[in-house]
Simulated scan of single mutants.
Amino acid sequence: MLDKILRFIITVLTVIAGLMTAKWISTSSFFASMVSNESLRIGFIDSGDTIATILIFIVGGISGGAVGFFLSPFFIKHLMKFTYWVESRLNKMPIYDVLAGSIGLAIGLIISNLIGSTFMHVPIIGNYIPGVSSIILGYLGMNIAINKREELFLMLVSLPWRGKEKEKDKSKDKIIEVEQYKILDTSVIIDGRIADICASGFVEGPLVVPVFVLEELQHIADSSDLLKRNRGRRGLDILNRMQKELALSVQINTSDFDDIAEVDSKLVKLAQVMKGKLVTNDYNLNKVAELQGVKVLNINELSNAVKPVVLPGEEMIVHVVKDGKELGQGIGYLDDGTMIVVDSGKKHIGDTIGVLVTSVLQTAAGRMIFAKPKAMEKGA
């Protein structure tokens, strides 16, 4: 049914084109010089037209209609292919890209219309400038709007649409702060502790996984190195668990900054655009993000903050597992992974002994406890 309608429309258009061509021929000076008999006239034909003019109109209309009727299947076929191509491209694009492209195209065409109208009176090229400028500015507006879609929508959201929005109370500000986006980097996903932290309820709001982080995880999971492959697969399993088992709000962000090569730089840029917080356990990324004004949630810092406080003079039981760097030292670990350096503990390797804490050293990498064996005490 649609093919028949389109074929009818194309045929009508070609008939009109044929009549317009016949009109142009009938008013040409060449045709006027050949026709001298002006005695016969018909109502809808201009008063100066003759029988020859009428015949030209009939021939033009029939010729145009015939061309349109027989060539319309060819045009319809290619029109359908073009329509399906456009539809498939639009279906693959996120809705933000479609909306941003439409807004950019509209703005580009408006600017083109304003510019083109000033050149209308220029001889020869004046009639062509509006069409050319519409194509160029429409494409530029659409392309720029898609590339800057995040900034565009954030700008629209932040506009004071109502006067009441300017008088937000402190409680609402706190809610907004809680619901800030938490952007996960590759290291914190592979680490896995973020899943347990979110499950405990200490981290709220939507979690965002950028598409370039997913690509890096997939690249690591496909590595030929066994250790890297296991780490990458662990990260993918953690994400799957967070989405399905823990039912957390995990969003995949498709924004990719093609002009930036490094994944860490892309993460910082995305956090700036979304005004979110970056969740990581990468010390260097933490410092770079803070220098650029991005708030960071460091899992290692959280882990150190919740470890039990140990003061010099306290007693504890330690299992010495290996020797230390310095002569005679032994090394043990608490349940939370904190390393304990035991003076003169090398001779107690493999034993569980009571120790007395002498000092505690806090570093960026974690916490170290220095201790010495309790005199005349040894555990089994």
Results as ranks from 00 to 15, higher is better:
38 E>G: 03
67 V>A: 14
332 G>F: 04
373 P>T: 06
137 L>T: 12
168 K>W: 03
202 F>W: 11
279 V>C: 07
257 F>Q: 02
92 K>M: 05
79 L>D: 00
69 F>P: 03
369 I>M: 04
79 L>G: 15
306 V>N: 03
203 V>T: 08
249 S>C: 07
62 I>T: 07
120 M>L: 12
84 Y>Q: 12
378 K>L: 06
320 V>R: 13
208 V>P: 02
227 L>P: 02
282 D>G: 01
98 V>R: 14
165 E>P: 01
69 F>S: 12
37 N>P: 03
22 A>E: 05
20 M>E: 08
325 K>P: 00
149 R>G: 02
350 G>L: 11
89 R>K: 15
68 G>S: 11
290 E>W: 02
220 I>F: 04
10 I>L: 15
272 Q>M: 09
330 G>C: 14
39 S>N: 10
12 V>Q: 00
193 R>A: 05
152 L>S: 05
318 V>C: 04
63 S>A: 14
42 I>T: 09
350 G>Q: 13
47 S>H: 09
241 R>C: 00
280 T>H: 08
184 L>M: 11
17 A>P: 04
253 N>K: 11
206 P>Q: 11
192 G>D: 08
353 I>L: 07
208 V>F: 07
375 A>I: 09
179 E>K: 15
191 D>H: 12
119 F>L: 14
326 E>K: 15
138 G>S: 10
288 V>I: 15
360 V>C: 07
238 I>H: 11
326 E>C: 10
36 S>L: 11
159 L>D: 00
49 D>F: 15
226 L>N: 12
248 L>P: 09
97 D>Q: 15
191 D>G: 00
294 V>T: 01
178 V>G: 03
174 K>H: 08
314 E>G: 04
